[in-house]
């Protein structure tokens, strides 16, 4: 493609990259709002059920603050 070529092919490319950038913004907002935390915690518990059942007397996960902390830790641990 030379610089003097028609704009039509370039328009398609710009549209493709604009879509890509919109998707990137969407992913960014998804990460900021943290909507995937619940599924992350569920998956972490599903993968390591022993963590949830090690100490039945420990009710720390019931406390909202501690549960939130638990979820955060589980979410950030990459398997």
């Amino acid at each position: 493609m030379r610089i003097n070529d028609s704009n039509i092919s370039r328009r398609g490319a710009f549209f493709f990259i604009a879509l890509f950038s919109c998707l990137q913004i969407f992913l960014g907002f998804f990460l900021i709002t943290g909507k995937g935390h619940d599924s992350a915690a569920a998956l972490a518990v599903q993968q390591n059920p022993s963590d949830a059942a090690t100490d039945p007397s420990d009710n720390s996960a019931d406390t909202p603050q501690k549960f939130a902390q638990f979820r955060m830790i589980k979410a950030y641990e990459a398997p």
Binding site: S21, I25, L27, G28, I32
Partner: peptide, 16 residues
């Protein structure tokens, strides 16, 4: 991930 999200939003806006 939140920090990555912020960076991602900035990158997306810049590319746009």
């Amino acid at each position: 991930p939140s920090m990555i999200g912020v960076l991602s939003v900035f990158w997306g806006m810049y590319i746009c």
